[in-house]
Each structure stands twice: as C-alpha cells, then as structure tokens.
Amino acid sequence: MEILVASAVGLMTAVGIYLILRLRSFPVIVGLALLSYACNAFIFASGRIVTGLPPILSKTAAGYTDPLPQALVLTAIVISFGMTAVIVMMALGAFLESGDDRIDLAEDDK
C-alpha cells in the first residue's frame, strides 16, 4: 500500500507541476487542485499508513492510527477548497476584463 500511496502522490504532484507551468489560467488552476490533492494524501500518510485501526480510544483496539493528521488534512482541505474558489473567481474576472485567459501580463505592463 505504501507503494500505491507514494506513487499516487508523486504522479499527482508531477502532473500538477506540469499543468502549473502552462500559459493559460484554466490548466494552472487544475494543476493547483491536483497539487493540493497530492498534498492531502501526503499529510494522511505522515501519520503512518495502517489498516483497520481506530483513531480514538477503544477498549478492544489492538493499536491506534494517528488522529492528528486527519485533523490537519481536514483543515488543509477546507483551506485549499476555499482558495481554489477564490482563484477561479479571480481568473474569471481577469478573463472577462481582458478577453483572454493567458496567465502572463500584457506587453505594455512589464
């Protein structure tokens, strides 16, 4: 399972970085979303990957999974979700104002 999680994180990060380097804002936003997915999976894995163990106190439990990364990842998901919404709105505003969704600035503004 470690291999699966690690390669998923690696693949999403690679694709995310490739998309961020594109010149139009739509692929950049998709790339940022992919990066945040990779990041969330990574945070989960930081508490060590175990199967079938409870995160909270239980009399019958053989062991525990670390509950803190789950709290951290929840915060991270909420924040990245909100941020993605903000950048979508701003990119839309920039697209409507300028007529194209290029990520670079106009030639007369450098």
């Binding site: 950049v28 940022l32 941020m83 950048i87 104002e97 300028s98």
Partner: peptide, 20 residues
C-alpha cells in the same frame, strides 16, 4: 481593472503553490 486582476491571478497562483 484588467491589469490588476491579471497580476492578482498570478499572485494567488504563486501563493497557493507556496501553501502546498
């Protein structure tokens, strides 16, 4: 304004990368 929004998108994208 056009230029401000475009610069804003760059700023947000860069900082989201930083947050990740």
């Amino acid at each position: 304004g056009r230029d401000r929004l475009k610069a804003g998108v760059q700023y947000v994208a860069y900082n989201l990368l930083g947050s990740t």
